[in-house]
Design a binder for these strands. Sequence first.
DNA 1: CTGAAAGCGCTTACAG
DNA 2: CTGAAAGCGCTTACAG
Lengths: 347, 347
Amino acid sequence: MPPRRATTPQSVTLRDVAKSAGVHLSTASRALDPTKRHLIADTVASKIAGIADKLGYRRDPIAASLRTRRSKLVGVIVPDIANPVFSPIIAAITETLSAAGYSTIVADGGQDRRRQSALVGELIARRVDGLVLATVRRDDPILKECLREGLPVVLVNRADESDSVSSVVTDDRAGMRLAVEHLFELGHRAIGHVAGPAHISTGYLRRQGFEEAMAARGLTLPADAVVEATAYEREAGEAAAAELLKRNPKLTAIAAANDLLALGVYRAIAAAGLSCPRDISVVGHNDMPLADMVEPPLTTIRIGPREMGHDAARLMIARIQEPEAAVKKVVLSPSLVVRASTARHES
Amino acid sequence: MPPRRATTPQSVTLRDVAKSAGVHLSTASRALDPTKRHLIADTVASKIAGIADKLGYRRDPIAASLRTRRSKLVGVIVPDIANPVFSPIIAAITETLSAAGYSTIVADGGQDRRRQSALVGELIARRVDGLVLATVRRDDPILKECLREGLPVVLVNRADESDSVSSVVTDDRAGMRLAVEHLFELGHRAIGHVAGPAHISTGYLRRQGFEEAMAARGLTLPADAVVEATAYEREAGEAAAAELLKRNPKLTAIAAANDLLALGVYRAIAAAGLSCPRDISVVGHNDMPLADMVEPPLTTIRIGPREMGHDAARLMIARIQEPEAAVKKVVLSPSLVVRASTARHES
DNA sequence: CTGAAAGCGCTTACAG
DNA sequence: CTGAAAGCGCTTACAG
């Protein structure tokens, strides 16, 4: 039963336009392509444009794709579309790309490697001109896959370890330094860290930043002061924080590797019969939407997601236009946003 | 400068498979199409499949699309990708669709009608097999556009007024009744409503539900007890609530048309030097992600977004498979989730 | 059960 | 500046 659209109006093709204008198909094609229009006599070109308009002609991108092997389509894969951090990043990517004539197709890659790999394959099959990835691990086989296909790739928010791919991230180490410095200045000395997964650059680097900042202040770091969450999810943050508190009853502050984890920390604090920030101060990371509306409003590190998205899109456009261009790594500076989840510690 | 991928390996086509198997192109095509495979001798078919596998053949969906005018692609347009309500809806749609072999392309339609219209045109040009819309107004010209094209459409969360399109929504009136009843039982009598935009079904129907529920309890509704927000955004909710409080200083409770508006109401309450729920109780609508983490944790109406997404996807699949099938309107039952933003009112 | 052929709607070397 | 022709990779009536 081939599902046939009963009423589909036979849409107008280039052939129709050409015939109606009394020119050859190829002339019509050129006249309607901004980059080729100069090849055609001005009067002819504008006549063709007028007729195309009148007939309601729209170029068939599928047919064009088949011929050119390009699509004016860029894929964006995020690890979790439900994570609010990605909303502004996606929005910014879409805006910039669309201004340059590219459509965006965003997909949720999830945690599963096989699913991600299948998704990439699917997008490649659909001839995307490039892929923006917010999913990669520090050492991710998917990248090799893309590079093998010769597909332009730019990484956003998370980077990989190789130097083979452009990326835009914030300075994760610096972000954690900001967090620790802030806590230190409030008088905290016993500070713990709920880390993100070590196989993701943000988890790895923020943990490094934490340890460096602690060392810089001469604070000893008990072996138990860091617990790694299994994923960037609230539940994982709660579990990790519960463990952290059990091991370190003296903790007066916790820096979390991201905001969702920080919300899990809130839970663990409450479950332990403690209160934030009275007993324990908490700093998040990312300043995701609604971070200001939770209780207590979350002190966190702002990463400029819109700028990140814009830059990623710009890198992508550059890369598509000039595939041999040098790899470019953009690192944005994070900033501290102080709200109510951190308080002075009187010892 | 046609951007050419320097290293693209000439990918293996159907022709390669056929040649390698010593059969005709068309035979290979049939053997590799599950719905046509029975036409081919079993031994031949499995030989072809084996070879396709070994060669790493992947069907080119672009070429197939051009020929069949179908794409196995479904578009999903949401009004605001940053609104957390849509995350689980999108995720559920994607899951169900993908299980049925369809890919999803999600796009942010924004508020602008022209942009939405362009987006729809773009997706149609890309030959999507159907469109799931979470953007429509009660009387939306875009629907006519889609119907004219013969494109399967299903509406999710918001419905239109005509009976020409399938949809899955929650019972918006019932939801507001739940909210008002809850407040009534807590002792509230002076209840206001921050309504959603009246041109959207949820705004319109929830307001009706509010007014009906108030009437059912014999509560008089001063003309000033409802203020309509200009959009489903926090800022708009704050502005509307500020207006509401100014006009009705005696209010002890506010039912908001959705959670984002409710968060705006929180702000307006604080700005007025009042406290929720001590002075004013607030009920939201949707139970979006993080609604439990705001302060105070939001009492709200749960709409079952995942079920909504699944149902929408199922309707879409049915419609694609059987375009003449009857229009179906699914209405899910909402439920009340009591948290801490509502409290007993002692008068 | 299999093959030969047409054609989906474009773009782009190649000629002139 | 314009035309004629080939071809992107598939699917599917039409034959046999």
